[in-house]
Design a protein around this nucleic acid. Structure first.
Lengths: 292, 292
DNA sequence: AAATATGATAAAATATTTTTATAATCAAGT
DNA sequence: ACTTGATTATAAAAATATTTTATCATATTT
């Protein structure tokens, strides 16, 4: 079997037209015919029902092959991308900003001690984008936040922390000296939130839905520091699980008293299929030592 | 990329000798050389460090490719095997005996009503062997028992029941009229168990270890009915989660009073990559309807 | 230093894939 | 019913890719 034929086949199931697939791959039309015939001969089964004039129909066997064909192509691309980056002698680490802010200081200290810090190439994206990049082989490793423990196929995750979400306010704020608040009582507060793509938004909107109000959002940023600064200036309140600056007295954490407050689960995450080289293994172990 | 080259490569990492790999595949030795050169050119990276006289060494890139190569070959084989069996117009169902005994009656009634029972080809193996067969594409679907919810990669599972393990005794047995027993008090009992390969054995040996004794096993069988018959005759006691015959008064269930008694989790299980055809989908839905 | 084992290379032989040119099929419009 | 246009299939030739045969190069062992 030949990955080129599989790529033609996949395109055929999507485009459903031999000539257009041929055009897409810059080959002649019979090339596609022959590629499909090869696959059908090899698997001894019709994969696509041709019809001139109509759209093509994919058989059960075709659907079955399609699933594996996609996986095979993906593995080929991953192999290629991972091997290319192995030569960089760097570990590409996905690091969403909230995680970076809260956990990376301790990691970086550890790595610096062992002369490994400059072997890291940090990639700062939201959690969802980070996970996608990891799956595509654009990252070797990531520290990820999620609401539930990650259970993605082909992905291994090692949880290292888990904390309930909470409210953060300025020390001048009326809630600063209380010992907690119910989410429903935040109806008239101004929120300063992350831009979309952060898990925090999913969580806050689900909590708001449960409490039957729409939070009043006065500003959205993707920079955690500008959010904290605005909270400090009492422009509005924030919504995080933990902050490095929990000890910082300018911004005060206020517990949520609701039952079943969602938790922010943080994990070290990598592809099952990723082969860590010696340098990368060392880095991974130092990160584990720092966090777990 | 070409699966033949990947197969040569995988063999090379195992056999570590070009000539012997060539012999294995019944091709000439330069064929292997060229295949490896093709891969190295395509991935632009040395995969194997050759040395004449010594064993070959696999590079980091080679190790990385190896993981994907194995996955690719596996997908190819699965596609082939699954497509071959799609034509059988049967669903190959893995059915470990304990599950068959307890749950299949209700499933078979449902399937018979819809004229689907003869479309099932039941394969009776222990849970571990069933899972392996499923992964290898020898089964389309399985009902499986496990201690924890299944979390295998590339496998989807839908839990349908979960019950604590318990002791089963004859109605003449001294425990038959009590309302439970601690496992440690079974030290002097005779056990009738499954042969190895059944999860029950793992569970009982871990409970026995916790209670600091070795259970006294008088007989092992792989047929659940002969075990039940022996229990009925008071030859010894049994260890199951539930039996169809719970309502049958000859054999009595005795609760285990220990904390954290392991549970037998039963699930409908299939490969993520399996494409169910129309018939198979119907069968799956009826099985779900019967169990979930 | 010779023998042995192992992998690489060149050139030829085979096999596979792709192209060009053309045919066949089907649907829709006239 | 006939024509047209769009689409896929086929045959033969050309282009590529893979494998073999024969031989060479290198390292290890004796």
């Amino acid at each position: 079997m030949n990955t080129r034929d599989l790529e033609y086949f996949i395109a055929l199931t999507e485009i459903k037209n031999f000539s257009k697939v041929a055009y897409k791959f810059k080959v002649s039309q019979p090339t596609i015919t022959f590629a499909l015939q090869r696959l059908e001969r090899e698997l001894d089964s019709k994969l696509i029902l041709r019809s001139r004039g109509h759209n093509l129909a994919i058989t059960d066997s075709g659907e079955q092959l399609l699933l594996h064909a996609r996986a095979i192509i993906k593995h080929g691309q991953l192999a290629s991308s991972e091997i290319k980056h192995l030569k960089d002698a760097k570990l590409r680490l996905g690091l969403p900003p909230t995680i970076e802010d809260r956990y990376f200081a301790v990691v970086s200290t550890k790595l610096k001690q062992h002369g490994l810090l400059n072997k890291i190439e940090a990639v700062e994206l939201g959690s969802a984008a980070t996970l996608t990049a990891l799956k595509n082989g654009e990252l070797d490793l990531a520290l990820l936040g999620s609401i539930n423990p990650l259970a993605e196929s082909n992905i291994t995750s090692e949880e290292f922390d888990r904390r309930p979400f909470a409210i953060y306010v300025s020390k001048q704020h009326r809630l600063a000296n209380g010992n907690g608040v119910y989410f429903k009582d935040l109806k008239h507060e101004d929120f300063i939130l992350f831009k979309s793509g952060f898990i925090h938004n999913q969580v806050i909107s689900s909590m708001a839905k449960r409490s039957h109000f729409r939070p009043n959002v006065v500003f959205k940023s993707s920079g955690i520091h500008s959010i904290i600064n605005m909270i400090r200036e009492n422009v509005g309140i924030g919504f995080f699980s933990t902050l490095m600056s929990d000890s910082n007295s300018d911004v005060v954490k206020v517990k949520l008293l609701d039952r079943d407050v969602p938790q922010f689960v943080t994990s070290i995450v990598y592809r099952e299929s990723h082969q860590f080289n010696q340098l990368q293994t060392e880095i991974l172990n130092q990160i584990r030592a720092a966090l777990i």
